[in-house]
Design a protein around this nucleic acid. Sequence first.
DNA 1: ATGTTCATTATTGTACACAATTTAGGTCTG
DNA 2: CAGACCTAAATTGTGTACAATAATGAACAT
Lengths: 231, 231
Amino acid sequence: MSQTSHKILNTLRQMIVSGELPPGMKLAEIPTAEMLGVSRTPIRSALATLAQEGLLERIHQRGFHVRHISKEELVGAVEVRSVLEGLAARQAVESGLSAAVLDQLQACLDQGDQLFVKGHITEEDIAHYHDINKRFHATIIAASGNPAIEPALARNEHLPFASPNAIRFDRHALDREYQRFAYAHQQHHTVVDAMRRGQGARAEALMREHAHVTIRYVDVDDLTHLPDTVN
Amino acid sequence: MSQTSHKILNTLRQMIVSGELPPGMKLAEIPTAEMLGVSRTPIRSALATLAQEGLLERIHQRGFHVRHISKEELVGAVEVRSVLEGLAARQAVESGLSAAVLDQLQACLDQGDQLFVKGHITEEDIAHYHDINKRFHATIIAASGNPAIEPALARNEHLPFASPNAIRFDRHALDREYQRFAYAHQQHHTVVDAMRRGQGARAEALMREHAHVTIRYVDVDDLTHLPDTVN
DNA sequence: ATGTTCATTATTGTACACAATTTAGGTCTG
DNA sequence: CAGACCTAAATTGTGTACAATAATGAACAT
């Protein structure tokens, strides 16, 4: 895939998740190609990829529709992430944690502590925490030694809110968001504690519960509007 | 996707899983197109799909390699299936089982009982059980009401042995295989029992354990040769 | 002799023309 | 008036020429 092809894929993906191309809208090759000023070829490949990611739905011999992401789907995706990240935590413990992995996890904990010690957060802090959070989860998945977990999570990565890479937050209620992120960070502490003690089942259970934080404080009905997210 | 395009995708997929195209082999568009007597266009789309399925690996600007499926990957895929099917069983219980679903599951149990009551199995029986098994698992996943489970399992479906749709069996040791399938069928009974009683956590645990039957009796090192499978 | 640069070659990426297929609409017939 | 069939239009699927890009090897300079 070339530079321009990549750009077109990202452009279309952004247009879909931002709602510029609303759910149900038909996407045919020729109009889309004309809209973006390229030929049908890169459009074909982009549409196929987006269908694979679950953002588009193929209509038999008739192009694609922008898929309507239902509430059930988002809630279900959080459940899927929950059990898969739980599995990762347990397998990471069972396969024996290296000092390097523990160091990386501890670094995430320390950096988060520094962020929350001052008792409130700014937008900038949230971006920083987003980073720490991403590293924390990626480290555990990598440490699991199970190469099948990441691909199984791949589809979720493209659904907003179903991925830890897309923490939703409300810019206008930073107090409440402080509570939520601080709580999530405390859960990180408990997960690492369980992992250090070799408590695989406990680590799994804690990680499962942790996944629900993404969505717990959110009115799920609002999610269909796809409001501001980090990343 | 048209008829011929579909056929080419399936042909290439079959050639890969059968080992006709061995792991590590380079697949360029032009030679592949000439080999199958079509133009590069349907080949491009097929290769992209197969890469998405995990059978091919994209080399930057240089075509694809047939991926080497490692032992870790197969074992990991079974673990992933384990937790996801466990989740499905639990959510099916939690969301309330309809009479129709229970009837379908009971039908799978009854049909399996009939198969095993005579104390031995034939190759034909295995094909039949394969069918029953597929229905059993699909029913529970559908009954979970979680639309995110199926796509998360999708990648596994294309890895031989990681899917219940690809039960491995040894044609020359039907006695041992009888034991294995009869045991798996008994597990189906216990899962349904837990589900009927509304025991979500038990159903989850039993279903998790059940997933391991696929691989438990198998010398994992043999898997790299991709021997006979049903489907 | 070795390292760097340039040209050649192999291969993917893009554009576009043409073929095939499906849907829709209109007309003809019972 | 209704239903079926046929024709036309729209849209995807395929083939192929051409452009862009990256790897390889050769030649030159240090």
